[in-house]
Design a binder for these strands. Sequence first.
DNA 1: CTGCATCCTGCTAGATACTG
DNA 2: CAGTATCTAGCAGGATGCAG
Lengths: 129, 129
Amino acid sequence: MVTTIDGAEYPALDPYREGCPTRRVLDRVGDRWTVLIVGALGGGPRRFSELLRRVEGISQKMLTQTLRGLERDGLVSRAAHLEVPVRVEYELTEAGHSLLEPLRALENWAIEHYTGIARSRTDYDTRTA
Amino acid sequence: MVTTIDGAEYPALDPYREGCPTRRVLDRVGDRWTVLIVGALGGGPRRFSELLRRVEGISQKMLTQTLRGLERDGLVSRAAHLEVPVRVEYELTEAGHSLLEPLRALENWAIEHYTGIARSRTDYDTRTA
DNA sequence: CTGCATCCTGCTAGATACTG
DNA sequence: CAGTATCTAGCAGGATGCAG
């Protein structure tokens, strides 16, 4: 099963097509906070407050929200320990773990290229100023 | 050079820290449209209108905007052929090409896991309904 | 400590119309 | 064809207060 655009054929399972389920998956994964949270969970289970401190700049609301989304997607598991005070730990599931590798690749790419990108940005800005 | 949070040490170049330049790079790369546009350019130079058709759901405005950003970052080059009608071609630079691999990894991950994720979502929804 | 509810704001992105 | 400009609506996301 293929589709044709501009004379070229594309597979049916195609993130470039709007309705494709992989698009929704990419939307989540491409999310700004998801990348960082999954990465932060890479080292093992983390408490809510740990994540809040670790992922700088995230608000409590967005952390909760993103964690819920990840839980819903089956990428993160949530374990509430009913002590006083409450302790909640989040952990990557197996699927979540498998996401770690492509994400790390992206992270490494960012680290390798950020100087070049920064330079290119200032160049571009002075050139078009 | 390291920083310490919760007793653990982290490297200085750390996307999890707000000020870190790699954070800004990740913000761009993790962008919803960037992933798709760079991917669409993976097969070679593409015209503006080709991209518009290929990346379903993107508006002309967002395509222009994202392409400008990628050009500014030195990931995409723009070649305007002054004919009638005008023809503009976009192409990945070397740096842009290097981004292709981690992005494809992400894409493949999405394709591999979307069924599991979809199931997990409906499970979660019925469970919490 | 963890997390939900509410309110409020700014920015993002879509629609539309116009130009080289 | 490949943009720019403007206007607007919707919603993402921050702040705050409260509850288990």
